[in-house]
Structure formats: structure tokens, C-alpha cells
Amino acid sequence: MGTDKTKSDLLPGTLDMLVLKILTRGHLHGYAIAQLIQQLSDDLLRVEEGSLYPALQRLELNGWIEGEWGLSANNRRARFYKLTRDGRKHLAGESSRYRQVTGAVARIMGFA
């Protein structure tokens, strides 16, 4: 179902994890999520819109986030996403898995 080529050079599944992590900060719309990822990574990670929206749909399909309509700061109608209980669980699992993988990669590369 739905092949999804993540256009960023991230490890597969990383974008989903980042979005979930960002959403632990509260209800955010798509644009804000992209902005935050970019800011928090010191402009290193740029989320392309072509990846972001499929990712959001995927997360919603899996029941990890929920979207609802609200008003943005400048009074525009925007869709805000929030983390669900399942999403929190998934995020916890994903981040520990990610820690293991990056740790392993770092050890091989001799960074650690």
C-alpha cells in the first residue's frame, strides 16, 4: 500500500519519529512542524513538503496522531495535529530503537 519514498536523506522512518517528537510540544500545524524541525536542527534538516504531508497522512492512518481544525496565529484556518496515546508509545519505541542504531553506527565509525 502506498509506496513512500522519503525524499530526505534521513534513515527510513526517521521523519515520522521527528514529527512525533515535535508534536510532544503541543498541537501544531504542518507548516509549524516543518519550521520547527528546521530550526531545532539548526537548518541542517529541511523537511520537504512532498514528504511531510504523506508522513502526516501515514501517521494519522496508523492512529498515532489526530488532526483537527483550528485557527492559526494570523487567524487562518489550519489543521492542527496532536499526539495520541498510541503515538506516544510508538515514539518511545522508535526513539530507543533509533538510539541503538545510531549508537551502533557510531561505534563502528569510531565516533564513540
Binding site: 500500500m1 502506498g2 509506496t3 513538503e49 504531508y53 504523506p54 497522512q57
Partner: peptide
């Protein structure tokens, strides 16, 4: 920068419907 909105939305949608 956003690119072709129809294509984007199609891609996003294809998450849901079987391609």
C-alpha cells in the same frame, strides 16, 4: 518550493487508498 500541489496531494492521499 512547494512543488506541484496536485501531485503532492496525490502522493499524500496514496497513503490511504490502495494505489
Amino acid at each position: 518550493k512547494f512543488g506541484n500541489m496536485t501531485k503532492q496531494s496525490e502522493e499524500a492521499r496514496s497513503i490511504w487508498i490502495a494505489r
